[in-house]
């Protein structure tokens, strides 16, 4: 027997239905608008020149995006390369603590997650850039500086997720390993990290998403050079920072404004790819 929905039920159902569907509609609309803008751009300026081009001179009609894609990848790569070992260190140290202490560390980290990115940008300007300037003799504004700032910025998120991954490993497994004469290091490497490799991969993907999408902290220290960077201490730009820079240089109406949609669409596509990848890794987790 199917029960009749009451008035309140129907009303509520309609309201939440509208809420859920409008999120989906807005999400798809974002994609459609960026896609539309990209299409206009590609029709006007061609695809190969921009997607694979090395020269970015909007006033000359040249829109090579490769330097920015390279910048985004290199900067996020540095960030992950620096942050993953540190986050793992923290997680390895914390899993052996009592549950109460672990909880305290979690609380502190979730506070640090909320630090605004401009604060990290400020820190980059007052510490990282001068340090690189001092060591390398260059200006200090560089991909390396941006990568290091991002590493610190994603560290709380990455640590928190890594701690969650490692603490989910069952205590019987850990004791089983120790009882077989495994040293603490062996237990960590061959059991705990091996068991949690997919959750850890998941954490890294999430952190990569944050790094790729960050704008302000990167913009403050990267130097904003639109040429293909020739080294880690050379200045550069990323997709996100270039959107910020060009919003004032290429306002709507100006020829080439839609290159911004193109860059945004590339970012959106990267995020979508990561979401699909995350679905896969979640299925692999024990």
């Amino acid at each position: 027997m199917k029960r009749q929905m009451g008035m309140g039920d129907q009303c509520l159902y309609r309201v939440v239905w509208v809420g859920a569907f409008s999120l989906v509609v807005l999400g798809i609309a974002i994609f459609a608008i960026l896609f539309w803008g990209t299409a206009k751009f590609v029709l006007a300026h061609g695809l190969n020149q921009s997607l694979l081009g090395l020269i970015y001179e909007p006033t000359q009609g040249r829109f090579g995006l490769l330097p920015f894609m390279a910048g985004s990848l290199v900067v996020s790569g540095i960030a992950l390369a620096v942050a993953i070992p540190l986050a793992l260190s923290l997680a390895v140290t914390v899993v052996d603590m009592t549950p109460r202490r672990t909880e305290t560390v979690r609380q502190i980290l979730s506070g640090l997650v909320a630090i605004p990115s401009v604060v990290f940008g400020w820190w980059g300007l007052s510490v990282v850039v001068p340090a690189i300037r001092w060591i390398s003799g260059h200006s200090g504004f560089s991909l390396l500086a941006a990568g290091l700032v991002l590493a610190v910025m994603i560290l709380p998120t990455l640590s928190l997720l890594s701690i969650n991954a490692l603490t989910r490993v069952r205590v019987q497994w850990v004791e089983g390993s120790l009882a077989l004469g495994a040293t603490p290091d062996q237990t960590m490497g061959r059991l705990i990290l091996a068991v949690s490799r997919f959750p850890l991969l998941e954490a890294s993907i999430i952190a990569l998403g944050r790094a790729l999408g960050e704008t302000m902290a990167v913009q403050m220290v990267i130097g904003g050079r639109v040429l293909l960077p020739h080294g880690l201490v050379s200045p550069g730009a990323t997709l996100t920072t270039q959107i910020l820079t060009d919003m004032s240089l290429l306002p709507p109406g100006v020829s080439g404004h839609h290159v911004l949609d193109f860059m945004a669409l590339l970012l959106l596509a990267a995020m979508y790819g990561m979401v699909v990848l995350l679905e896969r890794t979640r299925r692999m987790s024990p």
Binding site: L212, G213, E214, T215, L244, A264, L267, L268, V275
Partner: peptide, 11 residues
Amino acid sequence: RFTFLSLPTIV
């Protein structure tokens, strides 16, 4: 929702 959530805020 996940894609939307990870969309860079500059976008």
